[in-house]
Design a protein around this nucleic acid. Structure first.
Length: 717
DNA sequence: CACACGATCATCTAGACAGCATGTC
DNA sequence: CTAGATGATCGTGTG
């Protein structure tokens, strides 16, 4: 069926066909035909399980278009990552805004709204954002809602974030039992079971527009799943030979390794042989990219320099410690084929779409405390392998595992190449996420009695797979905890949220975090609140990621332990929770360094933090400090340094710069530069001459004009 | 004697969602 | 489900 026929058949306007043709789409792939035959455009709920790039997205988009243009409804598109949300938003907007469709984006860090979010036809959200909006009883979210697309539903199997998705789905179906759901996933083993859970039909396909061959490499020979063998020349070592081989055939290589250090080391080692293959005319573009990467930070760290050096040779590494502009730069350059090889951790396995002809999976084991190194799941292998083959550029894709010996080769074949991915099973009972979701259900009004609670949770995947009885005990325990801590109270057989419970659900923090903050702040009322104690308190909550301890930390940190007055009991050395406490202290010290304007270089040296890590740490701390402030307000505790601390964490500055960072275009670096140049407050900036401001380092004429004007109006106000 | 290369040993380990109110270098 | 790569340090061999 071609696009025009399809549009006619389902009463979609002709402009839709035009728009799709404009995007290079002419006909439908088999899984797309199957999804439409199964009722994707007739309000039918589906679980669509098919490989990456098999066109699941187009099915979703057609259903969304149909939903809005024909049925007059609205559609939500939910994804697990912010990066995916903004990618999807940009894509939908470019394609369909010209048709008059209003596209919106809502994630924790970003709301892109023209007018009200409620007015949008298509709204792209992260799962958590959608969950949060429901807890805020944002009724507009559901108004006229006819379709919800759930992208990457295999996230259900993730212990930390699967439960949210599961409960979100339960909530949507609780509120709108008739809602059409379109669950998208890469190939999964139990698509039928998930479909049953969702009262949907399963559409399963292994179609790929670019054929995928996966196999194992050993001693110059690539043994592929289809039984064929392929020789690969070279003598530099398996990974080197595989990379150089595909580059010589004008393809690109994506190498997955298990640690950041390995990603960097491998890229560094590849740089020399790759530089030799580099055509002269590409050197300039790479040099520009390298310069951009070094400019990403005010003062380049050793990691920045290393990345820049690799990039000059046409290779790069990629992991979550990089600054987001560096990540984007690397991704863009790889997509533009400027970079020939990319060594990466799992950031790229599930993240933005970045295919390569040959995907090399060097490490299949990953360290996981307290077990040691364990095999990654087959699901993860399939995700990485799915990156092989660029549509339109590569005739085929190759996913290659690297074996150490023959025994290893057989193991890899059995465990990964020939193995289906694991079943998706509910993680709702295992991760300790239940109290948050029980509170959420009560606050959102889905459950107002113990029986209602059971009823609500009977819609979860866990109940579908194991029976709701499996949850009985955990539900009762969660409820007891919430009642005891004053977030929920029982009244005449009903469950009612207290103001504390309401606040906690809306702040979207874990109830245990809320209790930690409340009790810590109460203690603070007695002993006083110091900056470090507050930073430690947020680092003590389960919502905060802790820094890892290194050997040297075990010698240094205990010395700092006695000197501070903490808001939670300090464990004795060797006692349970002692090392955890040290990790919290280290995290707090890193935040303290950040707000005392330690440069990235120092954060990297002292704490092993890359710019990307600092960003996340800062974001989490700011969120929890805000939560602490609200909780203090609710209970009438003194705020102490909380409000100032929160702003300082946000900008990474000492207190004396707080006035200056209010200026748009001024962050920690420029604020410090202004301060050093004698412009120590807004009044001085307002009174300054533009040309004097423009001479301050990191400022130019444009910014000078802008901040002078802002300062004038702020001073006036 | 300088340097390349190899053996030995200690060290260390992936990623990323959420509030609120608006913009870094 | 309980390892293995990296990189510093020291030792050995070679031109």
């Amino acid at each position: 069926m071609n696009i025009e026929e399809l549009c006619r058949l389902y009463a979609l306007p002709a402009e839709v066909a035009e728009a799709l043709r404009g995007a290079g789409i002419e006909g439908l792939y088999p899984p797309q035909e199957a999804a439409i035959a199964a009722g994707a455009l007739e309000g039918e709920s589906l679980v669509l399980a098919a490989p990456t790039a098999s066109g699941k997205t187009l099915v979703a988009e057609l259903a969304m278009l149909h939903s809005v243009l024909v049925r007059g409804g609205r559609a939500l598109y939910m994804v697990p990552l912010r990066a995916l949300a903004s990618e999807k938003y940009e894509d939908l907007k470019a394609k369909y805004a010209p048709l008059g469709i209003k596209v919106g984006l809502a994630t924790g860090d970003y709301d892109r709204v023209d007018g009200r979010l409620a007015d949008h036809d298509f709204l792209v959200l992260t799962n958590e954002k959608a969950d949060s909006l429901l807890r805020h009883r944002a009724s507009w979210l559901l108004e006229g809602l006819s379709l919800v697309v759930l992208d990457e539903v295999h996230l259900l199997a993730d212990p930390s974030r699967g439960p949210t998705l599961e409960v979100l789905v339960a909530a949507l179906r609780h509120v709108r039992p008739d809602l059409q759901l379109l669950a998208l996933s890469a190939t999964i083993r139990n698509a039928e079971e998930l479909a049953e859970w969702l009262s949907a039909r399963a559409v399963v396909s292994d179609f790929r527009p670019v054929p995928l061959k996966s196999g194992v490499y050993l001693a110059g020979e690539l043994l592929l799943s289809d039984g064929t063998r392929k020789r690969v020349a070279g003598e530099l070592g398996p990974v080197f030979d595989l990379v150089l081989d595909v580059i010589q055939e004008e393809g690109q290589a994506l190498v997955f390794v298990s640690t950041r250090r390995s990603a960097q080391a491998l890229a560094r080692k590849l740089a020399r042989p790759l530089a030799r293959l580099l055509p002269e005319e590409e050197k300039e573009g790479l040099a520009e990219l390298a310069a951009k990467i070094e400019r990403a930070l005010d003062e380049p760290t050793p990691v920045c320099r290393e990345l820049a050096a690799c990039v000059r040779a046409g290779v790069a590494f990629h992991h979550a410690g990089l600054h987001h502009t560096q990540r984007r730069a690397v991704e863009g350059a790889f997509r533009a084929r400027l970079l020939r090889a990319l060594c990466t951790t799992t950031t790229l396995a599930a993240g933005v779409n970045l295919p390569a002809r040959r995907v090399i999976i060097r490490d299949v084991r990953r360290y996981q405390a307290p077990y040691g190194s364990i095999y990654i799941p087959a699901l993860e292998f399939h995700q990485m392998a799915g990156r092989a083959g660029r549509p339109g550029l590569d005739p085929y894709g190759e996913a290659v595992l690297v074996a150490k010996d023959e025994e290893d080769r057989d193991e890899l074949l059995v465990r990964y190449v020939l193995a289906p991915p694991e079943r998706i099973t509910s993680q709702l009972a295992t991760a300790g996420a239940l109290p948050a979701h029980v509170l959420g259900a009560i606050v959102a009004g889905y459950a107002r009695s113990p029986a209602g609670l059971r009823g609500f949770f009977s819609r979860t995947l866990l109940a579908h797979q194991f029976g709701v009885e499996r949850l009985e005990v955990a539900l009762a325990e969660s409820l007891a905890f919430l009642c005891e801590e004053g977030m929920v109270r029982k009244w005449q057989g009903r469950l009612l949220p207290t103001p504390f419970g309401e606040l906690v659900a809306r702040l979207y923090i874990h109830p245990v975090s809320a209790v930690t903050l409340r009790d810590g702040l109460a203690e603070g009322e007695r002993v006083g609140l110091t900056e470090l104690a507050l930073l430690h308190l947020v680092a003590h909550t389960p919502d905060m990621e802790r820094l890892r301890l290194r050997r040297a930390d075990l010698e240094e940190l205990p010395g700092l332990l006695q000197r501070e007055e903490f808001l939670v009991p300090v464990p004795e050395p060797g006692a349970r929770g002692y090392r955890e406490f040290l990790a919290e202290l280290k995290t707090a010290l890193a935040l303290a360094a950040w707000i005392s304007e330690a440069p990235e270089r120092e954060l990297h040296r002292r704490f092993g933090l890359g710019p990307g890590d600092t960003y996340r740490l800062r974001e989490e701390a700011e969120w929890l400090l805000y939560a602490a402030q609200r909780i203090a307000g609710l209970f009438g505790f003194p705020l102490g340094p909380l409000p100032v601390l929160r702003t300082r964490v946000r900008y990474g500055v000492r207190e004396e710069l707080l006035e200056l960072v209010r200026l748009k275009g001024v962050g920690r670096v420029r604020a410090r530069a202004l301060y050093t140049a004698g412009f120590t407050d807004l009044a001085k900036v307002a009174a300054a001459r533009e040309e004097d401001l423009a001479r301050v380092p990191h400022l130019g004429p444009g910014l000078a004009q802008s901040i002078k004007r802002q300062a004038e109006s702020l001073v006036e106000a």
